[in-house]
């Protein structure tokens, strides 16, 4: 058991090192992408500052609270991109038949197709997100219990993010469609950039109970702000576990029906 973990960790390390080398091949790309991502976040900050310069509350939330939601979304979203960037490159592997070679190797395919392309550019971004978020928490005098709960729920959100990415891989095997699915996932999860209360029904219900974007992106922020009941937190923990199990079942189902598309 331990040997398998060490072997997997070594392969993950090698794949990540390769990913870093590939990233550093395109220096100009690195600069432009980083610049673009930083500017995007700064612009949204500026937009929120502009709004709250003229109004004190939006749907009952003040500026700091909205920032907590926005930063929490960014942390979860960026962590997902750091870990699962390889999913974005899965389609060529399926349509070319290269996926056969992945399946033939004596390692779990997830190490290659899910975790095999760590995005180091996003690592540079997630660090300031954490700093700013914890700076705001320090200002808000958050208790250590709430801080612990927040980190626990971030992990819970990452379980959901993992479930979604595994489902996208399974869908890729079943239909060869990955590129748009992953971007739709990104756009759907971006609905959780702000508190779900801003949406009207049935949109709000849809993104809470049908596609649990609200549970994935909002619950950690709600918990730290004291806005989530224990039952709702428990509900989100159960949903994330259920989502992960379902995604693994879907993966097994897709893999059993895989007949090799390309080659």
């Amino acid at each position: 058991m331990m040997k398998t973990y060490i072997k997997n960790a070594t392969i993950f390390y090698l794949l990540s090192r390769n990913a870093l080398k590939i990233t550093l091949q395109g220096r100009m790309g690195v600069i432009f992408f980083l610049l673009g991502k930083i500017i995007r976040v700064l612009f949204i900050f500026a937009f929120l500052a502009l709004v709250f310069n003229r109004t004190r509350l939006v749907k009952g939330y003040n500026f700091e609270q909205i920032l907590v939601f926005f930063l929490t979304f960014n942390i979860i979203d960026t962590l997902g991109q750091i870990l699962y960037r390889q999913v974005y490159r899965f389609r060529p592997l399926v349509v070319s038949g290269g996926f056969d070679m992945v399946l033939l190797k004596p390692i779990h395919p997830f190490i290659r197709i899910l975790l095999g392309g760590v995005d180091f550019l996003d690592v540079l971004l997630v660090i300031p997100y954490f700093f700013v978020t914890f700076f705001i928490f320090a200002k808000m005098e958050i208790s250590s219990f709430h801080m612990f709960l927040y980190l626990l729920l971030i992990i819970n959100s990452m379980v959901m993010v993992t479930g979604f990415h595994i489902s996208i891989l399974a869908l890729g095997i079943a239909t060869t469609e990955v590129d748009h699915t992953i971007m739709i996932y990104r756009d759907l999860s971006a609905m959780g950039r702000f508190p779900m209360n801003i949406y009207k029904e049935p949109v709000r219900g849809f993104f809470t109970y049908i596609i649990p974007v609200s549970l994935m992106m909002n619950v950690p922020a709600q918990a730290i702000l004291g806005l989530a009941t224990p039952w709702f937190i428990l509900f989100s923990l159960l949903i994330s576990l259920g989502l992960l199990c379902l995604s693994l079942l879907f993966w097994d189902y897709a893999l059993k029906r895989y007949q090799s598309w390309g080659g």
């Binding site: 756009d187 971006a190 609905m191 209360n197 801003i198 949406y199 009207k200």
Partner: peptide, 13 residues
């Protein structure tokens, strides 16, 4: 979806 986010955000504001 992008339109909806922007629309609902301004409706909330």
């Amino acid at each position: 979806l992008n339109l909806l986010v922007n629309f609902f955000l301004w409706t909330a504001i």
